[in-house]
Design a protein around this nucleic acid. Structure first.
Lengths: 215, 215
DNA sequence: GTCTACAAGATTGTTAACAATCCTCCTACA
DNA sequence: TGTAGGAGGATTGTTAACAATCTTGTAGAC
């Protein structure tokens, strides 16, 4: 597998993934020549990619001092989650208005799998399914502006997403909350869906706040 | 005033302003050499600035075909307003929790000026004051994540912000709604503040929907 | 032993030139 | 008359070299 020549968009996606999956760690310096060599492209491309990632909140650049992976503090992670609550509640509302039968079937399928995971104590798969479910809801809402905001918020806080589900009693609660959200969407009740999603994510916020206190 | 040499940040801000204030019109092509000459910098700088503005939603770039000012359709403007509603409600909630006496005084001052504008029928000044008031509320919330989202949303939809206030009966209603928001913030009632802000912006959304139907 | 000054290396910022691509307009041909 | 093809110009994409800035390590003064 030789090093291919990559265009800007591909470089952007790869670098973004490296930051999100932790290949590049928070506060790690991003040296242009380094990245250019690793991605098989020139410095100019890396430069514009870094600018984009800064605008997206994944990277910090300082004049004459280069770029580094942005470190998101626990306080910031909470802020991000609060903002997500606002956006996802909106998306749940629209999903209740615009979801098609296929969308709802997919949600129920994922929910059933999540149920199985909790019974088996497989919290890693549960987290993945949870992310997938939220994505399906976002897509069912057919609201690109909100979906876009959510995606950038999500990418900034991936490192904190596994924490809350580990709190004692959380899995069962979380499952019930998701159930309420999907039931409201299935009967096309926007108010109930928004309310249920807000309740769900407020619960997550609260858990995260308590976790922060503990440590 | 000779052409100064400008660094990236300055170029970014200037170009951004040109787009927001309409100096550069929607769908207008952004030619790198052109902008470089106008801003007194090189193509490389312009290139990264355009990448940032694309990520911010103010510019669209197509490979090998350059960049243009993004045209925001009325449908999208509505989506943006809906997202703003979610974010600003959150900010109102936090403003109610964290506003200091100075913040509240500033809000009341702006509200009084808005009152005067409505009486004199000066809707242009009213719009400006309206923007300023929302900004003060956002700052009083001390929630940088939400504030940042709001700023990018706002910049995308400036072209539509003057429309709704022109609807018959809107100024008086708008004034009353702002009054309710600020009263809730002043007595530090987060639920009421969030609710009042949501009601206010939902009203704006509704007006915009009706305006769209009309035309 | 600690601090300052300075030199060397590393990294970013800027410029210019070249290559690749796209767009426009003109011509030739059916 | 209308359409395919191609030449030329305009614009973007890429590369390399150079300039400016920062960082690091070392030597010398106190």
């Amino acid at each position: 597998m030789g090093t291919q020549l990559l265009n800007e968009q591909t470089c952007y996606e790869r670098l973004r993934n490296w930051i999100i999956d932790g290949t590049l760690q928070p506060n790690e310096r991003l040296i242009e020549l380094d990245l250019a060599a690793r991605l098989g492209t020139g410095r100019a491309t890396i430069r514009t990619v870094l600018a984009r990632l800064e605008q997206e909140g994944l990277v910090v650049r300082e004049p004459n001092r280069g770029a580094r992976v942005r470190f998101v503090s626990p306080e910031e992670a909470l802020e991000i989650l609060e903002a997500r609550t606002a956006i996802e509640s909106l998306l749940a509302r629209f999903a209740a208005m615009r979801a098609r039968p296929e969308d709802i079937a997919q949600m129920r399928d994922l929910l059933a799998q999540m149920h199985a995971c909790v019974e088996q104590g497989d919290l890693v798969s549960y987290s993945a399914l949870n992310t997938a479910l939220h994505r399906v809801i976002a897509e069912a809402a057919r609201h690109r502006t909100a979906a876009r905001l959510l995606e950038t918020l999500g990418s900034q806080s991936v490192r904190y997403q596994y924490r809350t589900i580990l709190a004692p009693g959380r899995p069962a609660t979380s499952l019930a909350e998701h159930d309420a959200v999907i039931r409201a969407i299935a009967v096309h009740d926007p108010d109930a869906a928004e309310q249920a999603m807000r309740a769900h994510l407020s619960g997550v916020c609260e858990t995260l706040r308590r976790l922060k206190q503990g440590h």
